[in-house]
């Protein structure tokens, strides 16, 4: 649900003094919590990344490592493809859920939410059972006569995408759905009144007004992708090494300075992407427009 709360929090109300000061005080406990349990560890990690001699030797090593460059490239590729796929699958689902009759809409939301409540680990493992050589997918395809021998589905990049898309889909659907629910129905009437067909309503009314939800979903899914660990490790093939696995590996080797440097690089890359994203799509303006 935090994904839904985010766009709300992003635009502070522009009223005079006293009104925002009190809510300001209310966030103090959260700020204190984040400072102790998030900011301090991040700073400690960054100080480790700068090396014992403060010459940023670990960061240099991280930036010049060929393996690391490759792993970061794989990570970005997986994140982009997963994000696009969840968007393509999630947008129509969110739209259909938003316009469906209440009973169907509730049912669809439950279908989205229920897998969301089980752990990532359980869902990844379920995909291992489904995609295995003797799993349900292969058995069904053989039973239908579509293939003769089982296909290799598990331990491939394909399996990683399937698992990650499944796990991340709710993070895309929920913010888009929430934004769509907030669209003023009178705008749709007005458009129809002016002669717009269903497609035009979608193109000129719903799509632009649902963009804040789309951007929120894309950002959340993309950032979550960058840190994925269990799913690629369980479902992936030999080449599916993600940044988090590289960091874990250096921790194993007691190269904690280098591990911190990789983590710092991942953090900076993520922040740069978020910054570029919000500038490119002028996120704030779009979010403001959606309200």
């Amino acid at each position: 649900m935090s994904a839904l709360a985010e766009p709300m929090a992003a635009a502070p109300p522009r009223r005079a003094g006293a009104a925002w000061r009190k809510p300001g005080l209310l966030v103090l406990p959260l700020l204190a919590f984040l400072a102790v349990f998030y900011l301090v560890p991040v700073l400690m990690m960054l100080s480790r990344a700068s090396g014992p001699a403060l010459d940023f030797a670990p960061v240099q090593a991280a930036l010049t490592s060929g393996v690391a460059a490759q792993v970061f490239w794989i990570t970005l590729k997986v994140a982009v493809i997963t994000t696009l796929a969840t968007l393509v699958l999630g947008y129509p689902l969110a739209l259909f859920t938003a316009i469906a009759p209440p009973w169907l809409s509730r049912l669809l939301l439950a279908a989205v939410m229920i897998p969301f409540w089980s752990s990532i680990l359980v869902r990844s493992y379920a995909w291992m059972v489904l995609l295995g050589r003797q799993g349900m997918v292969n058995e069904a395809l053989i039973g239908l006569g579509l293939i003769e021998t089982p296909m290799r589905l598990l331990n491939t990049s394909f399996a990683v995408y399937v698992g990650m898309i499944h796990i991340l889909l709710p993070f895309m659907v929920l913010p888009i759905y929430a934004t769509m629910k907030g669209i003023d129905g009178r705008l749709v009437w007005a458009a129809e009144n002016l002669g717009a067909g269903a497609l035009s309503v979608l193109r000129f009314v719903i799509l632009p007004l649902s963009l804040p939800g789309v951007f929120a979903g894309v950002l959340v899914v993309f950032i979550l992708c960058l840190g994925f660990y269990v799913t690629p490790a369980l479902l992936g093939g030999p080449g599916d090494l993600m940044a988090s696995m590289l960091i874990a590996q250096e921790v194993d080797l007691y190269n904690w300075d280098l591990a911190s440097a990789y983590a710092a690089v991942l953090l900076v890359v993520t922040l740069l992407i978020v910054a570029a994203f919000s500038r490119l799509l002028s996120l704030d303006r779009v979010m403001g427009a959606g309200r």
């Binding site: 291992m128 295995g132 050589r133 003797q134 799993g135 089982p150 290799r152 598990l154 331990n155 490790a233 992936g236 093939g237 030999p238």
Partner: peptide, 23 residues
Amino acid sequence: IKPSVIKWWEAGAQPMQMLLDNE
């Protein structure tokens, strides 16, 4: 041999799962 390696395993249960499921 790499082209035939389905997975480089990291926990002892994994090669057993791959054997038993005929992966």
